[in-house]
Design a protein around this nucleic acid. Structure first.
Lengths: 208, 208
DNA sequence: TAGATTGTTAATCGATTAACAATC
DNA sequence: TAGATTGTTAATCGATTAACAATC
């Protein structure tokens, strides 16, 4: 199976959400590619191609077994593994992410929340006691943390990224509006909210 | 000028960020498409095409005037207009967005923050006093609010969306993991953090 | 001038859609 | 059986890249 590009990955997740929210997976019940496609406003061939790409086979006149589709997508996207993560930056956004229980569904296990501000250290947010950044490296190594979530202000982001990389972290989820410089072996996902906002404003400007 | 698709829009914003963070716009100084492309890891023709698409002309041997590029992108993306917005849902995420001053740069003016929980109403978050959702329609109409940001839990999202649409709002920025059903005249941008997370986990799973 | 960089046309590439025989 | 739905091949479409003459 060749590696999936981002659009395919995105679509797979959206299929999963559709199935999870709108369909019942019991008793070998099925769903057709046409139905998924219609809900998603996609071509049905697209859906079949995506499902074929992750090794799923449907049956003519019947469609795809819902439970198989669900578990295969979970498996491909890696939801069944356990991913330990730390959140650095205990502001509102960091707090929101650290206490967002929905992410558990995807296998995310946030083991610690860090900040450097004396007012924040020791406070409890969600289930986490905020710890000083000086503890970061120890905890990351100890708990074999693989993912670092960066929710500090832009000016602190690069420094935090370097600390995380030095501790052996392999992936960064970056919420700061800053381009991080890291070794090629580290995967970075930039979550620039401004992209979404710009998109919205562009359409708004033209919709009047 | 034909309307720009999302990738073009995204790239324009990233060019803007690059220029804004790394270059000086004074004295008619210039930047070449090659330089932008290199930083972005793109083809230089791509950059020239994007800039041409928004009416910018460069000069051979010289490049593009930085200040022109900046102001033209701001103009195209609509950053120079004023977009009044309300945030519904005063949890950690809603609070983060309502108090995130960076968005002002894009022309976003958050005029009110709503919640329905008695504990939250009346509290101050950022510069906003949390108001009850019952006030929503009045304030939206009064202040000619055009954008609604939804940061309530999934089960409340559709209801909030409907209230916003009824008040005359034209665009929704949806942070809840819920598919909103709204009239076609309303632009919806879904900010599903799970897409970013899934992408990251997919790569993490395969990087060991 | 020489050469860096543009703007544009043509070629390539990949992703999406259409067509349709196979199947249950 | 008839017909809905699949899987796959071929056609289309659009976006990206290459090539290169024009230009300052």
């Amino acid at each position: 199976m060749k590696s999936l590009n981002r659009p395919t990955l995105e679509r797979l997740l959206l299929y999963y959400h559709f199935i999870d929210h709108h369909l019942v997976a019991e008793d070998g019940s099925t769903v057709s590619s046409t139905r998924i496609a219609k809900f998603m406003d996609l071509d049905d061939t697209q859906v079949r191609k995506d499902l074929a790409a992750i090794g799923l086979r449907g049956r003519p006149r019947v469609g795809f077994v819902i439970s198989e589709v669900k578990s295969r997508i979970r498996n491909i996207l890696g939801f069944e593994e356990d991913y330990r993560a730390v959140v650095v930056g205990a502001g509102r956004l960091g707090g929101a992410i650290a206490s967002y229980s929905e992410f558990r569904v995807y296998g995310l296990d946030i083991v610690a929340l860090f900040d450097n501000h004396p007012d924040k250290i020791g406070r409890t947010i969600g289930n986490h006691v905020v710890q000083p950044v000086s503890q970061l490296q120890t905890i990351v190594k100890q708990s074999k943390v693989r993912l670092g979530v960066i929710t500090v202000p832009a000016e602190a982001a690069q420094d935090v990224a370097e600390k995380l990389v030095q501790s052996g972290i392999k992936a960064l989820w970056n919420f700061s509006p800053k381009n991080l410089v890291v070794p090629k072996t580290v995967t970075v996902r930039d979550e620039h909210l401004s992209v979404g906002l710009a998109d919205l404003l562009y359409h708004l400007k033209r919709s009047d």
